[in-house]
Design a protein around this nucleic acid. Structure first.
Lengths: 328, 328
DNA sequence: TTGTAAGCGTTATCAT
DNA sequence: ATGATAACGCTTACAA
């Protein structure tokens, strides 16, 4: 490990000069700069980020906290964030909470200890409820969900409008007895439920059932199974994310029901399975890339100007109509 | 940010003592320990990891380098690694190379600069070819692929055997004109091709075609399209990973061909789409969890004992027979 | 334009 | 059993 001292010695200057050359700061005599750069190259010197961060009290690392990287939505988001952050010379620490408030708290502490400069965060419902109590000096941006009572930058889908459009499409196609599946751990599940209900009521209908369950395939399956096996099975199922939709699909198929004749199915997010099944699934497409980039931008803006008023950026989803909701 | 100094002052001891109490090292008078712990709690002190790492020259961070977190296989792997690492108080830095050797080199440098204690690495073919030239003092474990000429711990599937079993199953089901799609960026693609060819030759057959393309849906689609539109279309397609299989599926469906009557399709890894399409896809299941855990274990072993001889752990895949390869 | 030196928060060494 | 102190690698006033 060659250090700045050895470079300084090799170039016949002080460590301060080396530091200045590397930071492209201050005025350095071109001749000196050359000598330093030559020494850097020859010794293959690479600055130690720990030393730098310790001294300057800022790191080039941000944290990304969400439920699970195996959820394609978050996987896509994390790529968008990583690419955007890398552009700015930042690396990203990814933390999976599994919607567990304890893990969430643990990881927020960890990120604090790691001296990240900022955090992009998809809070659980529980965090959101108690967020007023939470305090940190680390710049934070909420993504995909909001943190109630916490005045921080937020970027998310216009969930109520998107859900309302999706449910409206179903109703206007002639479906009447709609069951809704929603994630129980996020504000997003709540908002999409609201949009779902609004669309129904605007048309003089009531939902057959609205169920809040963990955003996992197995719980989507179980909840859909209960609906389908009940005394009054739905003629359409609205799933508030791709995992719940997958669970519902499995339950429908297991019962040899036909989509959409026996029961329609609509959800959120582009997935391979939603494209490949027959008929393919009608979904709201979220602009993942844009959500990730916007969040990263907002975070860097806040890092640069911590006292700036908090912004909320709301992005529009796009309805992709496919066979699973064909008009009856 | 309360530092160790303030804790020391509050407890009326030296910083050295605080450090020792927190490290659970040396013998400390119970009374002193209590005082220190009380001060720690009262001041909500959390050690600064930068200072610690800088001084002790070791961090509690490892790097994970692979092509793309959006590939479900790597997403699963990263969760297994993260969970195993977190058990040991380690955090994980994830780096996506997109199979680009330049990004790969960039990220390996970055991880070096970040002072990670170890790296779990899925090298590109190019890296593997030139790996003899690469040198680092950071403990490394290869995962899913191997680095030729580099004597490092490695954990991967028994790819030749798995591919051979999968291809053999196809042939024994009566399929004769087989086309193979393989990832062009990894040793894994090569090994699976070898197993594929061996199975054919052992039964006196030759492959109709073997194509090496980037492990992406679009390139799998394009390569399968060429096969299917050619003068001698295959009656079975062997895809060496789930992305290529998805591309092949899309090409098959677009041509209104029926699986498996017109053409069979087999691949690797459990995916939602592979389960939900009709008929579902026959695959080799890789023990993702175990691969990730084993790699993490090996890495920690090597960190503890750097001179230990390199191990190669080979895990068995499991054939899951489904409808896409039903005997003709 | 460049050098000197202090200090970021920690741990390790050497005393005591 | 505990305290002083140096050092990890770097940046940044302040001096020159």
């Amino acid at each position: 490990m060659t250090s700045i001292k050895e470079v300084a010695r090799a170039a016949g200057v002080s460590t301060a000069t080396v530091s200045r050359v590397l930071a492209n700061k201050a005025f350095i005599r071109p001749e000196t700069r050359e000598r330093v750069l030559k020494a850097v190259a020859e010794l293959k010197y690479r600055p130690n980020l720990l030393g730098r961060s310790l001294r300057s009290q800022r790191s080039a690392r941000i944290g990304l906290v969400f439920s699970d990287i195996r959820n394609p939505f978050f996987a896509g988001l994390s790529r968008a964030v990583e690419d955007a952050a890398y552009e700015k010379g930042c690396s990203v620490l990814i933390c999976n909470t599994d919607e567990d408030p304890r893990k969430e708290a643990l990881y927020l502490d960890l990120l604090h200890d790691e001296n990240v400069t900022g955090i992009i965060f998809s809070p659980t419902q529980q965090f959101s409820a108690q967020s007023a109590a939470y305090h940190t000096d680390i710049p934070m941006v909420a993504i995909d969900r909001y943190a109630r009572n916490l005045r921080i930058d937020t970027v998310l889908l216009d969930n109520i409008a998107a859900a309302s459009e999706l449910a409206g499409h179903l109703i206007d196609g002639g479906y009447r007895r709609l069951g809704g599946l929603f994630g129980d751990a996020s504000t997003t599940g709540q908002d999409r439920c609201r949009g779902f209900q609004e669309a129904l009521r605007a048309r003089g209908l009531e939902p057959l059932a609205t169920r809040f369950v963990p955003a996992r395939i197995d719980s989507g399956y179980a909840a859909a199974a209960i609906m389908l096996d009940g005394p009054e099975p739905p003629d359409g199922i609205f799933a508030s994310n791709s995992l719940l939709a997958a669970g519902a699909f499995r339950a429908i198929r297991e019962r040899n029901l036909h989509i959409p004749d026996d029961v329609a199915l609509v959800g959120f997010d582009l997935t391979e399975w939603g494209e490949f099944v027959d008929p393919p699934i009608t979904v709201i497409i979220q602009p993942m890339e844009e959500i990730g980039c916007t969040a990263t931008d907002l975070l860097f803006q806040r890092i640069a100007e911590p006292s700036r008023p908090a912004q909320q950026v709301t992005l529009k989803g796009k309805l992709l109509v496919r066979g699973s909701s064909a008009p009856r």
